[in-house]
């Protein structure tokens, strides 16, 4: 046994009553015996990290100060600004000469925050991402994820020859998929002013080049969305989910778009629970055509032996 361990094992026993149940009170900085209350030591070092971290990456960096970082701003929200009050540290008004100087400084400070074309593009793209995320009512974590994805793309120099809008749409869509937030590609593409084709192309490109694997969406995730869109009952929802479960066991979902399957299941559920919605209504919310719903519907009722009264 070496020296350090010996010392430690001696300190682990209360010298008064011999108990080994000691409490380390980090707030008071004491080691106290739990049995007799004897204070063994009043200088207890906090052996925890002296840095703060809010996520894995910061934990790695071990930074000691600063506000939480955000990936949605090109400088991660760490820059300073010269404010517009025109007063000094004591609150006195600046002299006109100083005022002009500060005005100039402020201007150049703002301009120099973004240096170089790459960073300017990044700043523009990130503000674009934020805009799209707000349009789609996405939660903050999705926006952060999308920003991280976009930064990865920039770092790997994959943007070349692609439009910012297109890659932005692809990053948002990918982030949605990773965070299990259900948005169809159409919705994302529309919000970012690109076509579904462009967005899809870029999304596939990112998938290939970022070495990420995204599993296909489970149709169940769509169901709850459709149910609330059409204000159907919980009964219908559980029924639709049951239909999808059986369908996927029968391999009816393989090679079929999840939105279409979910829409058809919702349609059948609405019929069975007597809350009939038309195929057109469902198709509109689901961004699939009525024909798709009809085809999936036929497949499902045939293979699941569901009898529907029309």
């Amino acid at each position: 046994m070496n020296e350090v361990e010996k010392k430690r094992s001696r300190a682990m026993v209360c010298p008064e009553c011999g108990s080994t149940d000691l409490i380390r009170d980090y707030e008071a900085g004491e080691i106290v015996c739990e049995r007799c209350g004897y204070v063994i030591s009043t200088i207890l070092f906090d052996t925890g990290p002296e840095w703060r971290a809010f996520d894995e990456e910061q934990r790695e960096k071990r930074t000691r100060v600063g506000a939480p970082l955000t990936w949605t701003i090109h400088d991660k929200g760490l820059s300073t600004v010269i404010d517009w009050h025109d007063s000094d540290i004591y609150g006195r008004k600046l002299k006109p000469k100083q005022k002009a100087r500060i005005y100039r400084l402020r201007k150049w400070h703002r301009r120099s925050k973004v240096s170089g074309a790459t960073e300017r593009n990044l700043a523009y793209a990130l503000s674009e991402l934020t805009k799209v995320a707000y349009k789609l009512n996405l939660p903050k974590n999705v926006l952060e994820t999308a920003s991280v994805i976009y930064r990865q793309v920039v770092r790997k120099r994959l943007i070349r020859g692609r439009s910012i809008q297109g890659v932005a749409a692809a990053s948002i869509y990918m982030a949605c998929r990773q965070c299990n937030v259900i948005r169809t590609l159409e919705e994302v593409a529309k919000a970012s002013n690109t076509s579904k084709k462009e967005g899809g192309r870029n999304y596939r490109f990112l998938l290939r080049n970022l070495n990420t694997k995204v599993l296909p969406v489970n149709p169940n995730n769509y169901v709850s969305k459709f149910i609330s869109q059409l204000s159907l009952s919980g009964n219908a929802e559980s029924l639709a989910i049951k239909i999808i479960k059986i369908a996927s066991e029968l391999k009816l979902t393989s090679g079929r778009g999840p939105a279409g399957v979910a829409a058809a299941a919702t349609y059948i559920a609405s019929l069975l629970t007597d809350e009939r919605r038309t195929q057109g209504e469902i198709a509109k919310g689901a961004h699939v055509t009525e024909v798709t719903i009809r085809n999936r519907y036929k497949e499902l009722i045939q293979k699941l032996y569901i009898k529907v009264k029309l």
């Binding site: 169809t184 590609l185 899809g200 999304y203 596939r204 998938l207 290939r208 694997k213 599993l215 296909p216 969406v217 996927s248 391999k251 979902t253 393989s254 090679g255 079929r256 778009g257 999840p258 939105a259």
Partner: peptide, 21 residues
């Protein structure tokens, strides 16, 4: 072929039923 299971088990695959069956 069970494509949904295949995408879980296989490497270097891409399956996006929303875009291409």
């Amino acid at each position: 072929i069970d494509l949904e299971e295949a995408v879980r088990r296989m490497e270097n695959v891409m399956y996006e039923p929303e875009q291409f069956p």
